[in-house]
């Protein structure tokens, strides 16, 4: 099996689905390559991060659609096209930009199925970039997916690597409801073994990344890698850490988390998003409600602080959780009584 990057895995997923279903289109800023008609198909940039490179050459301007900088119209057009029969993939370049277009997603697309009495939903995927780590500053670095998860009618996917990204994106494109597919910008270049053929990963099924019997770490997105790193170090100290990657935060695989908590009784939840009204809070609250009798220590949350994301690399280094901060939290819950 070949090792490819998460960028390539996402590209493969789109290519496979576009080849399979003529109703799948890709629409967004520079997704073809800029100005809708690149000088050379093969050189088409395929978005600011090159994630859709080559799709224009293969599927043409009718299905790989460059737009102006016009996020409301992109999201609204995707919603309207989805309501009437297409399966659009709409690229919202940075998730931070949801602020100028979210009405089309949360008041329109997310509510069609319910508001129209089940007549039709909006089978669309919003692919969007999240996360800190490249000094992009307060308006290009946020992990605002807890806001998406708050909205009934939306599904929210947060892959931690290339293999999951491909299977989850194919599943998301075939899903008949709107899916917010959140791609961490620092993971695009990370490689994993990925099969060439098409495969699907169901939404709402967590992955047990690592078995463990002393402490359960639930980690999201890029944090999964840091949690695994911390778990390896802790093992040398004799602490057995389970790492669970929910992969989708709406729906959330409650059972897999609770099964692990039943064994360990000690929990650390790790997320790069800010802490208030967050998925870390949600997961901790769920465990307290539904797994209270298993708990042997207070749940610790390891998150970003309640601040914007700074541009300065020095400050940004202190923003997101680290393997060290995860390890410290695991030790604290492990040593609690």
């Amino acid at each position: 099996m070949a090792k490819i990057t998460m960028r390539e895995a996402i590209n493969q997923a789109m290519r496979l689905e576009m080849a399979r279903d003529p109703d799948v289109i890709l629409i967004g800023e520079d997704v073809a390559g800029g100005r809708g008609c690149p000088v050379d198909d093969k050189e088409a940039a395929g978005g600011v991060m090159g994630v859709s490179a080559g799709l224009y050459g293969e599927f043409g301007a009718a299905r790989v659609i460059d737009t102006p900088i016009t996020e409301s119209a992109i999201m609204g057009a995707a919603a309207g096209a989805a309501l009437t029969g297409l399966r659009p993939i709409a690229e919202l370049m940075f998730a931070d930009f949801f602020g100028v277009c979210f009405d089309q997603v949360y008041n329109q697309a997310a509510k069609f199925r319910y508001m129209f009495g089940g007549q039709h939903g909006a089978p669309m995927v919003v692919r969007t970039m999240v996360g800190a780590g490249m000094g992009a500053g307060p308006q290009h670095s946020q992990a605002i997916y807890p806001i998406f998860a708050h909205i009934p009618g939306l599904k929210v996917v947060l892959p931690s690597g290339a293999y999951d990204a491909k299977g989850l994106l194919i599943q998301s494109i075939r899903d008949n409801d709107p899916v917010m597919f959140c791609e961490h910008k620092m993971l695009y270049g990370e490689e994993e073994e990925v099969p060439e053929e098409s495969y699907q990963i169901p939404l709402g099924e967590a992955r047990v990344v690592r078995e463990g019997s002393d402490v359960t770490v639930v980690a999201l997105g890029r944090m999964v890698h840091l949690a695994v790193e911390a778990a390896g170090e802790l093992e040398e100290q004799g602490i057995s850490v389970a790492v669970i990657d929910p992969r989708t935060i709406s729906p959330l695989d409650v059972d897999t988390i609770l099964d692990s908590v039943e064994e360990t009784g000690r929990v650390v939840v790790v997320d790069e998003a800010t802490p208030i009204c967050s998925m870390a809070s949600e997961i901790a609250s769920m465990i307290v409600s539904d797994g209270f009798s298993s708990l042997r220590a207070p749940i610790r949350k390891v998150t970003a602080p309640h601040t914007p994301v700074p541009a300065s690399p020095v400050l940004e280094a202190g923003y997101a959780p680290t393997a060290a901060s995860i390890r410290e939290a695991v030790e604290a819950v492990y040593n609690y009584r």
Binding site: G80, L83, Q104
Partner: peptide, 13 residues
């Protein structure tokens, strides 16, 4: 308006 544009996009596609 954006929704109608989406329906028009479907028609054209």
């Amino acid at each position: 308006a954006p929704l109608a544009v989406g329906a028009a996009l479907k028609i054209k596609t």
